[in-house]
Amino acid sequence: MWHGAGHAVGAGKRPTAANSQPVDAPWSLRILAAILCGVLLARMIFAKKGRQYFIRRIPGIDAIEEAMGRATEMGRPIIYTTGINSFDNMQTLAGLAVLSWVARQCARMMVRIIVPVCQPVVVSATADILRESFRAEGREEMFDPADVPFLSTDQNAYAAGTIGFMVRNEVAAAFYIGGFGFESLLLAETGNRIGAIQIAATADYFQIPFFICACDYTLIGEELYAAGAYLTREPVQVGSLVGQDLGKLMILLILAVGSAFAVWSQGNLNPIEGLLGK
């Protein structure tokens, strides 16, 4: 991505040898990213070698199993959406990571899962994940391609189509895990009206309030990326979760120290100078 797009030559055009290079990040950012990656990799390696880590409880993720149990008891399907973005958005990948676990649970509990898709590119990956998950549980016959409908790349049409699926099938549980736009409220409110237990996870700032108000559980920001790893409890994944928390702690420390220096460097805001009356 070229910064200052309005003024850069070739902005918005096909990348060429001269302008397709990634952004030249400042050294501070490179060092920070390297340390973060180092911490994450170290935790993953330690976890693989057998070190036990405690990971904090995330109620929203724990509730996924509860929601599926409810669907089993009621004998109704569940609906799962990975949002409106394509593979260029990490949130879609996070949604698909959770989907594979949810699909296996569905196969075990014999619950039908409907996954309406907004991007044609995501359709085949989603169908493949469902098929593989059912096959892994020995229930390949449960897979029906019609349960992975591609609705539309248009946000409005996608929202309307998904709402239609929710209402017609009277879903018992709804999972919104990925990147969303304004349709977040439309989906969540519909789920609320039909009495579905709803779990949402997104890193889109502006949709988080809607999900918090209308859903039973909401995973905010990084919890979305942690969900897939949290569900498996596999040592390497648990290690990455611990590394993730350490990374956040590190950023918090940098913020605190940076804020203190910023205040200190402004003479008129320096608390010591203020106290001394200078």
Binding site: A33, A94, A97, E222, E223, L224, Y225, G228, L255
Partner: peptide, 10 residues
């Protein structure tokens, strides 16, 4: 910040 760290881990 949280989402960036989570995205890096993922």
């Amino acid at each position: 910040f949280g989402a960036f760290v989570g995205a890096i881990a993922m």
